[in-house]
Design a binder for these strands. Structure first.
Lengths: 333, 333
DNA sequence: GCGGATGTTTTTAACGTTCAAAACGTCTGT
DNA sequence: ACAGACGTTTTGAACGTTAAAAACATCCGC
């Protein structure tokens, strides 16, 4: 494996000149640059990242803790990871995966990775209400950026990127309204989830704005499963005044809604419009296709990396907007 | 951030002695070791990984290319990644994610990561029939291990770990047999997929062994979707002699089967037993739960890492066995 | 008391890169 | 012809670690 030294010898220049050819080519006389570049190419030289990192004390690696415990089935995690990787690579960086205990118990792991210089900083996701990680990292002076706000805190401990769940629900409600629905229900999660409150809040205010009823049209599920979604839908349909549109907080719950509709001989789209959240692979694979709110993964990843690696201390809070992907489940009745 | 030098000064020994305290403690006199360890603790010293890697030329990072879009099995990718991370960490290593063009077009990326010493080697997954990556890496002398065999080649280019798809299907068939089914169908993929042929082959030979019919009970879907699974199931049920058991090549296809059964007022389990493959999060979340073949992710990851990081050149081919997770979809009729 | 064996610690020299400063060359204006 | 300025290249040192060899200490048997 060729080193700077060998390239230098071959091009008959000093080692530093070769280094400059790569890192500050404008400093070289054009003909020298040419000669050096030819040698680099000929010897197939690639800089040794470890030596570089040792000298500059920047490893160009970003830590990401791979979510462990089975909370809401992370059906879009691979999309996120792919986008994050790609965004990191666009800045010459890479993602280093690791596992850690959830909550504050995992912090020594984060600290260790940073102290041993395996990573420059972290991208946090699966942010929870009162997530203790953010404050801890901030205190230690370890760089990080969060995908998701730490809900219910007035000031956010550190930079974040998030998707406007309220806005997303509102989009869904308006779309259902535009396709003729006038009683639009919401199937959500327990109150403890900040994300859940965000999304349900958007539904509620959109209904108000459009003059639609909300009373008796809001159901909380105990967990994120098809079964729970079906049960909630059944309850809604059995009520005195059943809905003609359903905004579900997740694709999985929406799938439950679709199933219950089918079971009753109703057609999603024609009889009741249904929307999901996250545009998981499932949304595309069911029939009729599930209208769902797609998180702009590429943009999210791009912003996360930009904030984490940027010098710019302004613009460290970014609220992005989901996109409504319309499929058969909301076809006009 | 403390360095060896500072610890050495504090403990009043040479730098090398501190290094030995960490890497070869048996060489130190117990009291010296004690003293050094106290200094290490006191100064909260953590070895700088870059310096170490530069010296030893081993980065303790393993590259894994995050699968990009349309793939059949990415519902269990997060399980796999988590297991892989954990297994790597048990050996003091970590996983570095990257993106690359599929096929041979992505090989320069692999080469580059290795040449720049960002990784020691690679774990390949999403192995395809005639996958060109294996041969290429072998030729370059870049260490790797494959999750999945390169199908239809007599000699495998390099070490691999795989799950016995044929054995898995056979397990499913036998389980359906044990719960009283006697006409067991198979819903599969196009012939081009080695993995598909492996699994369907297992179904066929198990049927033969048990004296069950196979004629007219094998359907190939064009793609891995719920819709296709439902269509295949419809075709089977409409045939002259419909099946009482269905082994689907994937959970998604099995979900299609469940849907079609429900649509016809049949109960999965009671009327027709259905099994899937991979035990994706979906299997648990549908109702009735889907009986499915779980890949032993932890063991797979463990073996992959062991082979990649081991010095042992024997035992570089491991065929593991899936486990049948029994749920409602195969409840005895 | 001395050669040799064994156990512990230090010295020296890298690993491959970049930073900072110095050196060298060439040009400009006076 | 010479100081100064600028552009290009080289020199020397450092980043934090470990391998290998050398040095030192201790103990044993004779």
């Amino acid at each position: 494996m060729a080193t700077l030294k060998q390239v230098a010898a071959h091009a008959e220049v000093s080692v530093q000149t070769v280094s400059n050819a790569l890192n500050a080519p404008h400093r070289l006389r054009p003909d020298t640059l040419d000669r050096v570049n030819r040698s680099i190419e000929l010897l197939n030289y690639r800089p040794n990242r470890n030596a570089r990192s040792l000298r500059t004390s920047a490893v160009e690696l970003i830590g990401y803790c791979v979510p462990s415990w089975p909370n809401q089935t992370h059906l879009v995690m691979d999309q996120f990871l792919h986008a994050l990787c790609a965004a990191a690579e666009r800045t010459g960086r890479h993602i280093l995966l690791f596992t850690a205990e959830p909550g504050v118990g995992g912090m020594p792991t984060y600290d260790d990775l940073h102290a041993r210089r395996l990573v420059d900083g972290f991208v946090l996701s699966q942010t929870e209400t009162h997530d203790p990680r953010h404050g801890w990292l901030k205190e230690q002076g370890i760089p990080f950026v969060s995908f998701g706000r730490v809900w219910k805190q007035t000031t956010q401990p550190g930079p974040w990127v998030d998707v406007d769940g309220a806005g997303g629900s509102a989009l869904a409600v308006r779309h259902l309204y535009d396709t003729g629905r006038r009683r639009i229900a919401f199937i959500g999660w327990p109150k403890s989830s900040g994300l859940g409150e965000d999304r349900s809040g958007g539904w509620r205010s959109a209904c108000k704005e459009l003059g639609l009823p909300a009373d008796g049209l809001f159901i909380r599920c105990r967990e994120d499963s098809i079964e729970e979604g079906a049960l909630a839908t059944a309850a809604l349909l059995d009520s005195e005044r059943p809905p003609d549109g359903i905004v579900a907080l997740s694709d999985v719950l929406a799938l439950g809604a679709l199933r219950e509709l089918t079971r009753r001989g109703l057609a999603a789209g024609r009889d009741v419009g249904v929307t999901g959240f996250d545009d998981s692979p499932l949304a595309e694979v069911v029939s009729p296709g599930l209208t769902s709110l797609r998180q702009p993964m590429d943009q999210i990843a791009e912003e996360l990396i930009a904030i984490l690696t940027g010098t710019d201390d302004t613009r460290t809070e970014r609220l992005l907007h989901p996109e409504l992907v319309i499929r058969g489940s909301t076809a006009p009745g």
